[in-house]
Simulated assay, not measured.
Amino acid sequence: MSAASSRSRAAARGTQGAGNTLGPLARNAWTWTRRIAPWALAALVLALVAQQARSVDWPQVWTSLQKMSPERLALAAGIAAVSYVVYAGFDLVGRHLTRHGLSVQLTLVTAAISYAFNLNFGALVGGFAMRLRLYTRWGVSGATVAKVIAMSMTTNWLGYFWVSGVVLMGAPPKLPGEWAMSDVLLRMIGAAMFALAALYLVLCTWSRRRTLAWRGHELELPDGRLAVVQAMAGGASWMLMGAIVWVLFAGRVDYPVVLGALLMAAVAGVITHVPAGLGVLEAVFVAVLAGTLPTSEVLAVVLAYRAAYYLLPLVLALPAYGWSEAVARRAPAGTRSAR
């Protein structure tokens, strides 16, 4: 064997060894980046929000809040209650598919309590941990709860995609400054979102394969009729949320503009992982409505929305959670679902 050939093989082994070393390093770096990036982004958003908050005339915001009529606030709270019932109904889809045996009433109460905790403390606390706790207290297995959660999330985002698609195609929002995008691009994004929602309906109606698998997770497809119910319920939930804010603005801002701002704020909150979208919701509405209404009035409306849709339901959910725990402890084991 020639010396040149030996050196070549040695170099190849060295390169392979370096590659084997760099592989785990690259994976570890990517893992840590995924863990740190959301928190870094959240810290940046909170810093920007804090900077903006210092420039707000908070006494004027309080004055704007005091000017809201009790009738308007009561109507907003009423719409919020209807919206919670609709959202809680998402879990009925999972109940239908899994046949877990829990009553309709207990399913709705469980979903509503979890949603209130989800909005105020984040998805891990409310959307997952609280749902798992409540359902398993009634004897529903963890695997079944996971399917219910997956179907609820699918219903929610299915509604988000088609409603966002319609808003972007029909009334693309006018984004300020560095956020600005052309109407053509926004309509294209809207069309793509609507198409994805439609694709789900097509798969549920005509696909021979009734289970979708991704990274070890499986999602059972409902039939076409149930998928349409999902789309309508998911869309109604988002539109009712927009109606709450629109009512609080007393018609001074067009409904599509309000709904578009709310939809953007929802995604921004998910990206930043800030619990309850604290500060993110306010920042998006202030940016979108800049030049339309004074900042103090916009913030007053968003704070009233938070009270009606976040805080009031949480006040009701806390004793409801205590009641459900007490009832579950007293319930005979034979009366609980074992599925």
Rank of each mutant, 00 (worst) to 15 (best):
N118R: 07
V109I: 11
V163H: 06
Q105T: 13
Y84I: 03
M151N: 06
A88M: 11
R131Y: 04
V86T: 01
H96E: 14
G127E: 10
V85D: 05
M153Q: 06
W157D: 06
G127S: 04
G142H: 13
H96Q: 15
T144C: 07
W179F: 15
S182R: 07
N120F: 11
V145M: 05
V82C: 14
W157R: 08
T144S: 07
A80D: 01
S141R: 14
G159V: 05
V82E: 09
N120H: 10
E178G: 13
P176L: 00
E178I: 15
M151I: 12
Y115C: 04
R137C: 02
S141Y: 04
G122W: 10
G159E: 02
Y160L: 10
Y84R: 10
L102K: 02
Y160F: 14
F128V: 15
V167D: 01
F121L: 13
V167Q: 03
F161T: 00
A123L: 09
A150D: 05
W157M: 09
A143H: 10
D183Q: 14
R131A: 06
L119P: 00
A171V: 11
G177P: 09
N120G: 11
L106Q: 10
T155Y: 02
M169E: 04
L175T: 12
S164L: 02
W179I: 14
